[in-house]
């Protein structure tokens, strides 16, 4: 699978450093699961983190800390297994957020055949799944903050650009964009915003109020 619009280094570095909001962590973890080159770039930034840790000044740690840790080594504790490749439509981190694969999503209509499912909402960012019917445009909208759209199934076009599974579109406040799903199948995306979307038309704006887009 070739990724034409890969996730950028700024997000990967933020993820490596652990400074991103939770909603953004979800889109990065999902994108990296679909793009081995991004995984390698992330690994590079994590190596940088390791170098900084290695070079950090040591803080005082007492022998009692070592004793306490040694005393815990034999404790039985539920250790969640590491996430493995799950082979589903959604990569593992997204399945964790949904509580299952595509079939487990609890969709709600947002008008014009589009559906959404909010996965995470906090003041710093919202993560939602968005399903755009085949051949249809996402409701016209702009936004105050940055919008990250990761394609999971299907593909959409925006102007001259095509975005398919694993591609990430970054739209900032000045972008009045209009993603249109390709006619072959519905396009399902993970969309992360750091400020509420604003839809251009009156009706969608009402939807926005009721549905918390």
């Amino acid at each position: 699978m070739s990724i034409r619009h890969p996730i950028g280094d700024d997000l990967l570095l933020g993820f490596a450093a652990g400074t991103l909001p939770a909603a953004h962590d979800l889109v990065v973890a999902t994108a990296v699961s679909l793009d081995d080159d991004a995984r390698a770039r992330l690994g590079g930034f994590e190596t940088l983190g390791g170098a900084l840790l290695e070079q950090a000044d040591a803080a005082p740690v007492g022998d009692d800390a070592l004793t306490a840790v040694l005393g815990r080594l034999d404790e039985e504790e539920d250790m969640a297994p590491p996430r493995r490749i799950c082979g589903g439509i959604f990569p593992a981190p997204l399945q964790d957020a949904v509580g299952g694969d595509l079939a487990a999503v609890r969709w709600r209509p947002v008008g014009m055949g589009a559906r959404q499912a909010v996965l995470h909402r906090s003041p710093r960012g919202t993560a939602r799944l968005l399903s755009i019917p085949a051949g249809q445009a996402m409701p016209d909208h702009s936004h105050r903050g940055t919008e990250l759209t990761l394609v999971l199934t299907g593909a959409f076009r925006d102007g001259d650009l095509r975005f398919a599974r694993g591609d990430l579109q970054v739209a900032d406040a000045s972008t009045e964009h209009r993603p249109t799903a390709e006619p072959a199948e519905d396009c399902i995306c993970l969309v992360v915003t750091d400020a509420p979307l604003r839809f251009a038309g009156l009706l969608p704006r009402l939807f926005q109020r009721f549905l918390g887009i």
């Binding site: 652990g18 973890a29 490749i85 981190p93 997204l94």
Partner: peptide, 17 residues
């Protein structure tokens, strides 16, 4: 650190083994 602050597990990429 993030898990402590959020009290939930941070999303991580799928593990390759």
């Amino acid at each position: 650190k993030i898990d402590m602050i959020r009290k939930t597990r941070r999303p991580e990429p799928e593990d390759l083994t």
